[in-house]
Design a protein around this nucleic acid. Structure first.
Lengths: 149, 149
DNA sequence: CTTCGTGCAAAGTGTTTGCAAGATT
DNA sequence: AATCTTGCAAACACTTTGCACGAAG
């Protein structure tokens, strides 16, 4: 999320691609950077962001690249409410998403908060929760107090 | 989930429709019953189930009816992984979904298990989790132990 | 008989695929 | 030069909309 992280991920990209005989292209760098910059973004939002820098990039490339970046372990996606999935940088800063059904806002919380519950699930049901993929729906604080937008 | 519940919901349907000047139709009864029977189902699965009884029902009607039943508070939907949402009966037996990323299986747990965590979120972040809408992704017990399918 | 609901067809989203032209190594 | 990537267009899957006919109250 900081410049430092971005540099780390950008260089990982070059290495990960090379080590698999894949190629480093401007599009791939731009898509990764867009995901890092946006924090949470749908393929379409990534597309828009990338286009601001390189107008000709096709949405197809966005989809293919997001899929690739996910295989490389650089990004992950979650399914927030309806419609398109949203992508975000993977690894370091895992987080649980809090999605407000009213205003559509997305908040994040430290995954450690859900750890006790996750551990309980593992112990009781043998189910290992993927904490980086959790999205909880509900109503955020602002909307809860008549700040209805 | 039992016959008793079904009866309750079926009669609720008639009342809720009447009280709003809407009409009770065979399609609406069939869709509701399918959701109750199936437990978790995508619009397409509901369609298939309904067709077994009434062949001519159109998928459009399934969509419209599911939306209606949701407005009436009789069913809810969740977004499990990618693709179509899945619907299930609302109210009484709320539950949290455990979705296995490996085998695709859906398990349910008592929402009380997540209550402490939900309460914590409300206290700390003012976010009120909609427990009936929670889906957690991960790996289920069977898949966790080499029962890889 | 009035108003609501359904089926059908068509239009909309969002996503994937096939293929030739273009870029990277 | 070899092969991976991209853009484009078309195909897809899922969902929504418009409208006339049919059904419920």
């Amino acid at each position: 999320m900081t410049n430092y992280d971005r540099t780390v991920s950008e260089s990982s990209l070059a290495e990960m691609l090379r080590s698999r005989g894949l190629r480093l292209t401007a599009q791939r760098q731009l898509v990764l950077q867009a995901v890092l910059d946006l924090g949470h973004a749908t393929p379409e939002q990534v597309h828009t962001a990338v286009r601001e820098v390189a107008a000709g990039v096709n949405i197809t490339t966005i989809y293919r690249t997001l899929e690739l970046l996910e295989r490389l372990g650089l990004v992950t996606h979650t399914h927030l409410s309806h419609g398109s999935p949203t992508y975000h940088a993977a690894g370091e800063h895992q987080h649980v998403h809090l999605v407000c059904r009213n205003c559509g806002g997305i908040d994040e919380i430290d995954p450690e908060l859900i750890r006790p519950f996750a551990d309980q699930l593992l112990a009781q049901r043998g189910f290992r929760v993927d904490i980086g993929h959790v999205s909880l729906f509900g109503v955020c604080g602002s909307c809860e107090n008549g700040d209805q937008e």
